[in-house]
Simulated assay, not measured.
Amino acid sequence: MNRSELGVALRVLRNASGKAGKAVARGAVMSQSKLSKIETGKLSPSADDVDRILTAIGVSDDVKAEYMNAARAVATEATAWRLIQRAGLHKAQRQLQAVEARMSLLRLFQPVLVPGLLQTPEYMRAVLSRHEDLSEETVRRTVAARLERQEVLYDETKTFRFVITEPVLRWLIVPPVVLAGQLDRLASLSRLPNVDVRVVPLAGRKHDFPNHAFVIRDDRAVTVETVHAEVVVTDPRDVALYVAKFSGFARHAMGGDESTRLLESVRDELSRSREGDQ
């Protein structure tokens, strides 16, 4: 089944259910126009789109599993950052919030920046403000949406596992005072019972390369951040590659009290360097 065939099959399922397109679109949290384009093969649905449409139609678990397998097998999508920005960065945050509300396990590897779910408002603003084409209003709305999204961390029915590399703790993409406050935030969140923050230290022999950041939501989809685009991978064979890579880094990373001590040590270094500059 290719993507256009999948759209037609979704329309057949909806018609068989007796539900109007408007009702299904509303239940799937998408416009009726988008649903129509998916059903007519004019727009390729993402695996998440298919999941939401099937849920809104109300199909059986067996039917849903069959269609989701087909959706994941054909779906590897790349969306340019400029298109995400044009649509609204705050809207992208809200879409992620909806996705994370439905998942139970998030695994995130980040070799460059503090993960968005763990960022302080000051860190967010400093990172976003580097992009000169973002207006102050866009930055404000995006920060507000990301802070709202972070509430999911306190839902103990969900598990969050973060693996970052030690350079993330030291990379002065923000002023030392902002980074020091960010490290305090990391240490605090790592104490939540459902949040695990691990750090891959610079010292010691390494087993793999930290190519790029990626997020695994459950075992269903991986989001990869490249320079020009966000890539979503849903083929189970490819997802398994990322799960294995994450597990390898997690095994060789500091966790618990050991990672907390490293966070506090780097924070103290930043504080001393700030005092020396005064």
Rank of each mutant, 00 (worst) to 15 (best):
Y154F: 14
D196H: 13
V199N: 12
A187H: 10
V152F: 01
G204E: 03
L147E: 12
V199R: 07
P167D: 08
A187E: 14
E151L: 12
R185W: 02
R149S: 09
L179C: 04
K158T: 04
I164M: 13
L189D: 05
L186C: 02
P175C: 02
A187L: 01
R170Q: 15
P167S: 13
R198N: 00
E156K: 01
E151F: 01
R161Y: 11
P175D: 14
E148H: 10
E166M: 02
V168T: 05
V174K: 04
S190G: 14
V178D: 01
V163A: 06
D196M: 13
V197G: 03
L169P: 08
A180Y: 13
A203G: 11
R149D: 11
N194Q: 08
P201I: 11
L186M: 12
I164S: 01
D196P: 00
V195N: 06
P193N: 08
V168M: 03
V195W: 01
I164A: 00
L189M: 14
E156F: 03
F160Y: 15
E151Q: 14
V200C: 08
R185V: 03
F162Y: 15
V177A: 14
V199P: 07
L147W: 09
L189H: 05
T157K: 01
D196I: 11
A180N: 12
V174P: 02
L192C: 06
Y154N: 09
E151A: 15
P175F: 01
E156W: 00
E151N: 12
T159H: 14
P167C: 12
E148I: 00
V199M: 12
R161S: 14
Q150P: 01
V163F: 02
N194A: 03
V197R: 05
S190P: 03
L153E: 08
L183R: 10
I173W: 02
L172N: 00
S190I: 05
N194S: 10
E156G: 00
G181H: 10
N194H: 09
V177I: 12
V195D: 09
V152L: 12
L186Y: 05
V177F: 06
L183I: 10
V200T: 08
R185N: 15
E151M: 07
L169G: 06
L202Y: 05
L172C: 03
L183N: 10
V152M: 06
P175H: 05
L183Q: 13
I164K: 00
A203Y: 02
S188K: 14
D155G: 03
T165H: 00
Y154K: 07
D184V: 11
F160E: 13
P167K: 13
R161G: 04
Y154I: 00
S188G: 00
L179E: 05
P193F: 06
S190W: 01
